[in-house]
Design a protein around this nucleic acid. Structure first.
Lengths: 150, 150
DNA sequence: GCATTATGTTATGCATGAAAACAAAATCGT
DNA sequence: ACGATTTTGTTTTCATGCATAACATAATGC
């Protein structure tokens, strides 16, 4: 059983993939927050913006579907992004219940800026990884994401 | 840019390691919760128990240090585990401010049961991974954990 | 045309994590 | 030995994330 720098053993956690994913996720989230300080962009919000940028005209439910966010929790996220003038929202011509979204010019700019910061942030945390290693890591994580939970 | 099963593109997210770690973490957390239903054990609680099991006599601050949990947030976790009779807490002979912890017999039993469930849960989500791949994944994640955030 | 499903919404609860401030004890520096 | 500093556990508070239930309105299926 490996002993950490601080002399504390992780015990069973040491070999649990889930634990290390959780820790890495928390760590990256913290650095992400720091990297985005002052921009008002959080991980989820960037996710939503990225989906809209790549799928203009997408509706709320499908954004949530892509990101694993429930319909109910999408509402306040969209409100937040609308209030910040990152999005335009129109009633779908095909479905009067649904809204379709696009980025505003301001939103486009913010996404570009955020992306630059995020790339620096990832570079900072993944400087020890070659491009091939990063791709391999993403590929492995994607395989986990692909597992159905019943 | 890759298109997902549902026909929605992830856009910039697609190549961001942080996004995939976040998604995998959330996914594993959900399945963990299901796997532990009825036991009262959550990811954090198992973490604390595992640290105590591997380092009997450890104090509260150092548990938090090992897991990246702040002192303030350790308090209610410990209270919860004490209330469930998983732990014994004694004042440290070396430091009258500090408590030292050990698992109760009940706690030992619960950890063993939880670990069995967790191994099944990991097996379920990582069935597509060889032992070498799992080790590689953990090794890569550990390298991220090792990066100082200033 | 009626039952069912989909979309967006409100409200609520629980869990996580960060921050500030505190008392009591230990440690450090001189 | 004594005063300043640090450490330990604690309370309180806040922001965020994620889940569930229930609802009105619109679309779809039979």
């Amino acid at each position: 059983m490996a002993i950490e720098d601080n002399g504390i053993s992780l015990g069973a956690l040491d070999t649990l993939v889930g634990y290390h994913i959780r820790r890495a996720s928390s760590l990256m989230a913290t650095d992400f927050t720091n990297a985005m300080a002052g921009t008002g962009i959080r991980q989820v919000l960037f996710g939503v913006l990225s989906i809209i940028a790549a799928n203009p005209g997408i509706n709320q439910s499908r954004i949530g579907e892509a990101l694993g966010i429930q319909r109910a929790n999408m509402v306040s996220l969209i409100n937040e992004l609308m209030a910040a003038d990152f999005l335009t929202r129109k009633v779908s011509p095909d479905d009067r219940r649904a809204f379709v979204f696009e980025l505003t010019a301001h939103g486009e700019h913010v996404v570009a800026d955020a992306l630059a910061r995020i790339r620096q942030h990832e570079e900072r945390l993944l400087s020890g990884f070659s491009a091939a290693e990063r791709a391999l890591l993403v590929e492995m994580l994607t395989r986990i994401e692909a597992v159905p939970l019943e």
